[in-house]
Amino acid sequence: MSEARWRLSVDQDGVTIAGDRFRLTTAPQKFAADEAVFGLAESAEMEEIVSELEAMTRRTYGQYCGLARAMEILGERWAPMIIRDLLVSAKGFGDLQKGLPRMAESVLSTRLRELEHTGVVRRRSVPVPAGGSAESVVYEVTAYGRELEDIMLRLGRWGAQLLGDPRPEDIVTPDSLVMALRATFQPQHAAGVRATFELHILDVVVHARIEDGTLRAGAGQVPDADLVLEPGLALRELMTGALTPAAAITGGSIRMMGDSALLGLFTQLFQLPRTATHGHG
């Protein structure tokens, strides 16, 4: 992609922000001292203007194509992860940071501004619990952004074929597991089924509630789980069919509490494609 470049200059005659295809200049004015100039350049207002320009002048492919436009949004580092987490639920800035701990705060701020600018994400104020009239800001996907859900789930299923054993730096988050459950759910096997599963993966707990073909997945424990699973690394093998439920039970590959007969149902309801074969084609 080509990257738009812009320049900021501040002098005693005003402020000029210019790019390859634009030039913005404040009305001519004289500052009393150099300190005033630097005060303007370092003000929060100036930071906001600069950040907005960064979002508006991000890298482009230079092609009049819907896919190119989409990838100018989704192709930015961390943007898909932010959308993934917001598709699970609306979140405050701190909650997003918690789910994406390796993402720099400045990058998160920039990505959120970009996603707001393109209409994928919006912010809204919500009351602070027990905070009287106090409010906090949360981010959520718009109706336009919600259209990405099926795309993200399909992309997750496609990428799952490349999953081997976790890398040393890999982490698991509640939102990533909830989206994984949504992505791997097989509704054709869920007609007439009413069951609740609880999964413990490392220190993360999620649940999946199936009610006659419909899945509701979320973070945390549930008091009425029919089957509680602690599958460890065997989960991927179970979901791809590389490990049968019977072999998992007899071999002690997983720990579980509840009706063990439901393990077979779980592997029917949640399925991963087998690992992709590389080097052919």
Rank of each mutant, 00 (worst) to 15 (best):
P28D: 13
G131I: 14
I73K: 10
V126W: 15
G131M: 07
V137K: 10
A79Q: 02
I49D: 00
R59C: 02
V141F: 01
S89C: 04
E140H: 10
V37E: 05
V37L: 12
A44I: 09
A44H: 01
V50E: 12
T26P: 02
A36Y: 03
E54N: 07
Q29K: 10
G99A: 03
R111L: 09
A32M: 14
T118K: 09
D34A: 15
L96R: 01
A104H: 14
P28N: 07
G66I: 05
Q97V: 02
T16P: 12
R146T: 13
F31L: 15
I82N: 10
G66T: 08
A70I: 01
V126K: 15
D95L: 12
R58G: 03
L67H: 10
Y139F: 13
T60P: 05
T26F: 07
L24P: 01
Q29P: 03
R111E: 07
P129M: 05
S133V: 14
V137L: 12
E116H: 10
C65D: 15
I17E: 06
V141K: 00
E76R: 12
L108T: 10
L24N: 02
V121Y: 00
E140Q: 06
V128Q: 14
L100D: 06
S133P: 13
L112G: 04
R23H: 09
Y64Q: 15
D20E: 15
E135N: 02
A36D: 02
A130D: 03
E140P: 08
T16Y: 11
A134Q: 13
H117P: 08
I49M: 08
E54Y: 12
E135P: 13
R59Y: 02
E45V: 14
E72I: 09
R146A: 04
E35M: 02
D20V: 05
F31R: 11
Q97Y: 03
M103H: 08
F31H: 11
L100N: 07
R111D: 10
M46T: 08
L148R: 09
F93V: 06
A32I: 06
G39S: 07
E105N: 09
A90W: 03
M71L: 15
S133Q: 14
V128A: 10
G92E: 01
E45M: 12
Y144P: 06
G119F: 11
M103W: 04
M56Q: 11
F22T: 02
L108A: 08
A130R: 12
T60F: 08
G92S: 04
V107T: 08
E135L: 02
T25Q: 06
K98R: 13
E135Y: 02
F22C: 04
L115W: 01
R111N: 02
A18F: 05
M81H: 08
A90H: 07
R84L: 09
V128C: 01
F31V: 07
L24K: 03
Y64S: 05
L108E: 01
V128Y: 06
L148Y: 03
L74W: 05
D20I: 08
D20K: 15
P101T: 08
G99Q: 07
Y61A: 01
R146I: 03
S125N: 11
I82A: 06
V120S: 02
I17T: 11
T25D: 01
A79W: 13
C65Y: 09
A134G: 11
A55S: 05
E149V: 11
G66A: 11
E149S: 01
A41K: 11
Y144I: 13
R102Y: 15
M81K: 06
I17V: 03
L67Q: 12
A68E: 04
E54K: 12
Q97K: 00
R146V: 14
G132M: 04
L53C: 10
G66S: 06
